[in-house]
Simulated scan of single mutants.
Amino acid sequence: MKTRLCLIIPVALFSFSYAYGEPALKGCAAKKHSIETQIQHARQYNNKHQIKGLEKALEDNIENCDDKKLAAERKQKITEKMNKVSEREAELNEAKARGDAKKISRKAEKLEKAKQELKAAQEELDR
């Protein structure tokens, strides 16, 4: 038992140091890496149609991706999601003012979904 533990701990520590030692990819490089990973998975399962589409996406990424343009698109998406959250909050407040419990519940669910979409868009900006 102690021998196993002695073997596992150094391997685990090495894995963590390796993972945190490499700088994380951002922007177009991260997008390219993601597409390449998807291509590998598609090849693993011999999905020729998906491979073809992903290879086209990779070519497009290589030829046209610009980090500044990508960041601007992601910021625009965040703005749109923030507007959607504001709209959903206004709808919820209106339903609360009317006192309709069924509508309040539905509007609260829609607001929560809009907040999740906003959070996802914000996380995407950091990639």
Rank of each mutant, 00 (worst) to 15 (best):
N64C: 04
E59T: 13
G53E: 08
A72P: 11
E63N: 13
E117A: 09
C65I: 05
I8Q: 08
K96N: 04
L7K: 08
E63P: 04
D66L: 03
N83K: 09
D126I: 12
C28N: 02
Y18D: 08
E117R: 02
A12W: 13
C65V: 05
E22S: 14
S34D: 13
K48C: 08
I8Y: 09
K32S: 06
G27R: 00
S105W: 11
K119R: 13
A57I: 06
E87S: 13
K119F: 07
H49N: 15
Q76A: 14
I78E: 00
A101R: 13
D126L: 14
F14C: 13
E117W: 03
I104G: 01
L54P: 00
H49L: 15
D60A: 09
Q76M: 11
L111K: 01
I35M: 00
E80T: 03
K113T: 11
I35D: 00
N47V: 04
I9L: 12
C65N: 03
N46P: 05
D67I: 01
C28H: 02
K81L: 06
Q44K: 11
A57K: 10
A95Y: 01
E36W: 07
L25T: 03
E89K: 09
A72F: 07
G21T: 03
K115H: 04
K75C: 06
K75W: 02
A30W: 02
A97Q: 08
L92A: 02
I8C: 07
G53P: 00
K107L: 10
R88T: 05
C6T: 15
I104R: 01
E55I: 02
K84Q: 09
A101G: 01
T79A: 15
L111T: 01
A97V: 05
K96H: 03
P10L: 00
